[in-house]
Computed example of a mutant assay.
Amino acid sequence: MQNSLYTDHNPGAPARFALSVDVEDYFQVWAFSSVIDRARWEDFPLRVEASTRRALDLIEESRARATFFVLGWIAERAPGLVREIAARGHEIASHGWDHRKVFDQSPAQFREDVAKTKRLLEDLAGVAVAGYRAPGFSIDARAPWAYEALAAAGYLYSSSAHPVAHDHYGDPRGPREPFRPLTGRALVEAPVATAEIFGRRVSCAGGGWFRAMPYAASRALLRRAAASAGGPVVFYFHPWEIDPDQPRIAGASLKARLRHYLNLDRMEGRLRRLLADFQWVRIDDALGLAPSRAAA
């Protein structure tokens, strides 16, 4: 059952823009999964530490705060990065262990994945982990058990819904505002940002959409989303998107290469403008949760 949390929201009130970063490296993205097996990940140079620290610096230059959804695989190999993110005042949240889509796991595998990742992040950062984001926004009708598993593992919210039409994810009829997916349970789903244009729903949440669009169009869509938002306007990006010198992956399809490499050289400049044009907070703060201030 989908119960809106913000039925009394005043559209004229100031919007809360929530910034998020999906901490994964260039070789772990879904677009390259057909040519890079997980067993080969160790063969690739890890660049995520430097690119994430660059993202941290950019965010803090604007005095913003963000939520960092970290892969367990990354946290295991770069524990100092997790500690640094938390020490610099940002939210540590889970992106699952190894970027495996939810519906590609059994319920038992998913329960182990989210519990294992949560334990590691909490041990490293010394804070409670409240949030989860599914790789590839992959909580949908193919995994109806996922929210129960998250609630049982102790997560307070998910930001795994991208309610648009897309060839790999999304439900264009799904809620655009935060809702409770489980009757009688406190777990919240906070979808990433969308806007309505001429009766059609479009994404303004970040990622490849943000790199492909002129910046002025993205800014206008975010303002439109905020004007009608029944909750925080959630935006995301990846550290590899501000790493234009990353190694190029051989063998990937033209479509995958276009999606991944488009406008990487312009992304940092666009982020600077975005950070200057809106006031950004962590997702847990935007939802009024903020449990990660307390020790785990």
Rank of each mutant, 00 (worst) to 15 (best):
L222T: 01
S158L: 05
G208D: 05
D123R: 12
G96A: 01
R133A: 08
F17N: 09
L124G: 07
R16I: 13
I36Q: 02
F103A: 11
L289H: 07
R219C: 04
M267S: 15
D140R: 07
Y6S: 15
T183D: 13
F278S: 05
F17S: 00
F278W: 05
R211H: 08
E148L: 01
L124Y: 06
R88C: 00
A64F: 10
R40F: 08
Y236P: 07
D104I: 00
E122C: 08
V188M: 01
R282G: 04
D57E: 15
R272T: 12
R40P: 02
S62M: 05
R173W: 11
V23E: 03
Y236F: 15
V281Q: 13
A78S: 00
A115E: 13
M213A: 15
P79C: 10
K255C: 04
G208R: 04
E24P: 04
A212N: 06
Y236W: 14
H260P: 01
L289K: 06
D104V: 06
A296I: 08
R272I: 11
G251W: 01
E61L: 13
H162T: 02
Y169Q: 00
P178K: 06
I74D: 09
G136I: 00
A151M: 06
W280K: 00
F103G: 09
K101Y: 09
M213N: 08
V202E: 02
A130H: 10
M213Q: 12
R180N: 01
V35D: 03
S106T: 15
P175H: 11
R53H: 01
D284M: 07
D8V: 08
R16N: 08
A115M: 06
A125L: 05
V23H: 04
S292T: 13
F235M: 12
L254K: 12
W73H: 03
S228P: 03
P239E: 07
F179D: 04
R282F: 03
T7G: 13
G208W: 00
K116T: 13
I92W: 02
Q105L: 15
R257A: 12
T67E: 06
Y157W: 11
H162S: 03
D245S: 14
G231Q: 05
Q2I: 13
E122W: 05
A151W: 05
E60M: 14
G207Q: 09
V48R: 04
R266Y: 06
V114S: 02
H9I: 10
A87Q: 14
S20F: 07
R88N: 05
F32A: 13
P11I: 07
A39G: 05
P291D: 12
R47I: 00
S20C: 10
A225F: 06
D123A: 13
L254P: 00
V21D: 03
G12L: 12
T7L: 15
M1G: 13
A64P: 11
A295Y: 07
A161F: 04
R173A: 15
L275H: 09
A161M: 12
Y155H: 01
R38G: 09
F237S: 03
D140M: 03
V164L: 04
Y215G: 00
L289P: 03
L56M: 14
L81N: 03
S62A: 15
